[in-house]
Design a protein around this nucleic acid. Structure first.
Lengths: 114, 114
DNA sequence: TAAAAATATAATAATATTTGCATATATGCA
DNA sequence: TGCATATATGCAAATATTATTATATTTTTA
């Protein structure tokens, strides 16, 4: 596996958490400071800071300082595409192989001894 | 958070593992049975089965049976888009807010007391 | 029918993640 | 300077994930 893929899997892993997705969704709309998140996330301030720290350490977000506010913003462009996938409509499952998945039996298409 | 989003975050979470991404990448090329995975994944057979079980339980893959082979295939269409994101080229970071992130100082754009 | 092949399951141990709570730091203001 | 505000950090407990090992199940073949 390439290194780049590995680091992107790490990005996925860090993002794949309900609170962190909610944070990222908000940040996709614009800059937000920590107490903004307190208004709509039903978790403690330290916990919010911890999630933000995880996102920061993964290079997903960054912040600038305004007085005592930390103003967070999105940094990693992959996140935009990821958020899109979460909202996209997928009307059907993928088409199964042309065997008979209904019966759960079929013929393996690969080269294989029996 | 909507239920659908929550279940998709679960899909992400299950997928965000190097071995499971390698499995999904292979399955995106076509049906594969468990011993096919043994040929290029450097982990034990039981561990492969466990990863496949995790993917099955999440509704990401399914299988049909051919004799003693279990022929796995991709089921969830979101995975195709996810794999694409992992390979896509992202040449730059997202443009920062129009303040001065270089100095890490700036002015919070939201409505807030100081 | 017994053995082999392909795969799954179960139990365990090691490790990582998550949260809660207490406390620390830094800034602005009286 | 001292206090309030905004946020971060450290640590412990609870929980979840991962890999390992042993064993079970199913199907084919001899």
């Amino acid at each position: 596996m390439q290194k780049q893929i590995a680091s992107r899997i790490e990005i996925l892993k860090v993002s794949a958490h309900p609170v962190r997705i909610a944070i990222l969704e908000e940040l996709s709309k614009g800059v937000k400071c920590v107490s903004d998140f307190e208004e709509f996330l039903d978790i403690s301030q330290p916990n919010i800071s911890q999630h933000l720290a995880a996102l920061r350490h993964a290079g997903i977000v960054d912040y600038f300082i305004d007085g005592r506010l930390r103003c967070y913003f999105l940094k990693n462009p992959l996140i935009i595409d990821l958020l899109e996938i979460l909202k996209k409509d997928y009307p059907h499952e993928l088409p199964g192989p042309e065997c008979c998945p209904a019966t759960k039996k079929g013929t393996y298409p690969g080269e294989r001894r029996r």
